[in-house]
Each structure stands twice: as C-alpha cells, then as structure tokens.
C-alpha cells in the first residue's frame, strides 16, 4: 500500500518513515508535505525550552501523562544539537520518558539540529505539520535554550514554556540568555532545591514590571517538581488559560499568520540556497579562489559578484 494511505490508516511505521523522508530531504519530500497540508490546522503546539539539565524532558513526561488523562493524542519532538565538528549527535531525551509504549496516543521523536542554516526551523516545522496531519491534538517540542536554537521554537509553537532552575542564577542572567523575551509561561523547576524561593519572587517582580498595559497576558511564574509531578496540574491550567487568552484577543491567529509568512521565506531561501550551490558544483574552483583572496589578488565581494552573475545568467 502507498505510504500515504498507510499514514492515514494510523500506521506508526509509515509516520516514522515520512518524518525521515522529510528530514533527509529525500526526492519528492515537498510533494509529500504539500499533500499533508490538506489535513492540518488542529494541533496545539507547545514549546518547552530552557538551559541544559533544567528538567525539560522530565516535564515533557509529566505533560504527556496529563494530556493523556484529558483524552488527547500527543506527539513529541525533542531537539538536541548536532556536533559541528563530527556531524553526529547524542539524543538522550527518551531516557526521561516513561513507558507509554503500546499506547498509540503517544509518539516521541528525537531530532538533531543537523546544521543547515534555517534548517532546524524548517525541519521542526515540517514535523509539526506531519503530526498535525496524523491527528495529534498536542505537539510538544523540547529544545535546549542555548544559542539560536530557542529562537526556532517561537517560529513553530503557539505557546512557549521557559524552564529554569534555582541553579540558573538570578533574573538578570535569564534575561541575558534571551529566554525572557520568548516566555509565555515561566516554570521554575526543581523547586525542591535551595534558592528556588528567591528566584521565583525575583522573576515574579521582573514580570510585573515588564507588563505594558492591563490587557497584556501576565506571564506566570510556576514552581514545579517534575521528578514527583508536583504542580503539573497548575502548569497545564496556565497553558490552557494562555491559549484561551490569545484565542480570545486574536493574538493566536496573528501569531500563526506571522509564522506562515516566515515559512514562505524559509522555503524560498532554502531552495535558492540549494539551487545556487548546486549550480556552482563542479565549476567552482574554490581552492584557486581562496588562494587568490589569501594572496590579496581579489576579495570575497568581487568573487561573490562574479558567481552571482554567472548564476543569474544561467537560466
């Protein structure tokens, strides 16, 4: 049977193959995605980000349990970095996930960032589309909040939960790390650890000051203990309250429209980049060019002009 039929027949193997197919950018992946777009629009996408070891996967595990109780089908994407040196990756988030196997309502996929610029946003986005088409009500996306990775999360989520721990330091450090701007909900995990009270009240104060007007969403700061599933009910309640809030004031739709605009740009940029590099293959004498630039005979800008003109004349 055709893989799409198997996919729509709820066959897990078909779902997994399609994700790989798209992730690998195998021939025809765009047509496949284009077809899946016909059945999307229902899944709620929740991002969980924060520093390494904050307890994100343990929280994801708790959220899965809660959403299952609410009769939801849950798909998880756990993103970990690819080593820029070897191209390999160690994907260890599954370790924290309980046994839901045999439960067809949970699906968990680990992804490596793989490196292509703008690639993660696109690949993660592709998987959210695949999940949505497969019928997952909830998509949970875990990413480590370092570097640019957490920025990808806002392009693919309806809501972002930022997880920090007492060890993360004070509010200023969180602000520096760029995590403040993207949070819709703050979760101070490992609340059983010393120092949690201080960081919670500090964050609450900071959030109060950041509120611009009365109609703004008040970013809540929720202490949790993911290892013992403590306060997860509060977290879920806030997540749902946020979704209600933005659906009522229209921000939900505005946000999604902005994301679509970005996706169009990403799809185009990816293709241009790919076609351009493809067109250079074979006739790009990179070694010679590097030599000439190194020896001061030319420069990257003149070379760029020349290559670009070649490309635009080619068709």
């Amino acid at each position: 049977m055709d893989i799409l039929n198997r996919f729509y027949n709820n066959e897990i193997r078909a779902l997994s193959r399609i994700i790989s197919y798209v992730e690998n950018r195998s021939d025809g992946y765009r047509d496949l995605l284009a077809k899946l777009y016909k059945s999307v629009g229902k899944s709620l996408r929740i991002g969980i980000t924060g520093p390494p070891g904050a307890g994100k996967s343990t929280l994801v595990n708790c959220l899965i349990t809660e959403f299952l109780k609410l009769d939801k089908k849950v798909g998880v994407i756990a993103v970990d970095p690819t080593s820029p040196f070897t191209g390999g990756a160690l994907l260890g988030d599954r370790v924290r996930i309980n046994e839901f196997s045999g439960d067809n309502n949970v699906y968990f996929r680990s992804m490596a960032t793989r490196g292509a610029s703008g690639g993660l946003t696109t690949a993660t986005n592709n998987v959210t589309v695949i999940y949505d088409a497969f019928g997952f009500d909830i998509t949970l996306i875990e990413t480590v909040g370092v570097g640019q990775v957490e920025l990808d999360i806002i392009d693919n989520c309806d809501i972002v939960v930022v997880t920090i721990v007492p060890e993360s330091g004070d509010a200023v450090q969180t602000m520096k790390a760029g995590l403040m701007e993207i949070a819709n909900i703050f979760c101070v995990n490992k609340a059983d650890r010393p120092g949690s009270g201080r960081i919670i009240s500090e964050l609450r104060q900071t959030m109060e000051h950041r509120k611009k007007d009365d109609d703004d969403w008040r970013i809540p700061v929720i202490p949790t203990e993911a290892v013992s599933a403590k306060n997860i009910d509060k977290l879920i309640a806030k997540i749902l309250a946020y979704v209600d809030f933005v659906k009522t004031n229209g921000m939900f739709e505005i946000h999604r429209r902005k994301q679509i605009q970005k996706q169009i740009m990403n799809v185009l940029l990816y293709r241009f980049q790919r076609d351009f590099l493809e067109s250079l293959r074979g006739n790009l004498q990179l070694e010679n060019i590097i030599n000439d630039i190194y020896n001061g005979k030319t420069n990257p800008y003149s070379v760029g002009d020349q290559l670009y003109n070649q490309f635009s004349k080619a068709d």
């Binding site: 897990i12 193997r13 997994s16 193959r17 994700i19 790989s20 690819t82 080593s83 070897t86 191209g87 390999g88 990756a89 160690l90 994907l91 260890g92 599954r94 370790v95 046994e99 196997s101 045999g102 699906y107 968990f108 996929r109 680990s110 490596a112």
Partner: peptide, 30 residues
Amino acid sequence: AAFRDAGMEVIYTGLRQTPDMIVNAAIQED
C-alpha cells in the same frame, strides 16, 4: 559517544528496557 563522534545520530534510551519498549522506540525513531 564513539558513535556520535563517528558522525551518527545516537538515540540513547537508558536502562531496564523491555523488548517491547526497545522495538517501539526503534520504530518511532526510525
């Protein structure tokens, strides 16, 4: 770690896995 350094994507699932859990994870992770 050695597999990762060889450029592979390694999914580590941890201790005390049953055959059922291992095969389910293998299928989901393709």
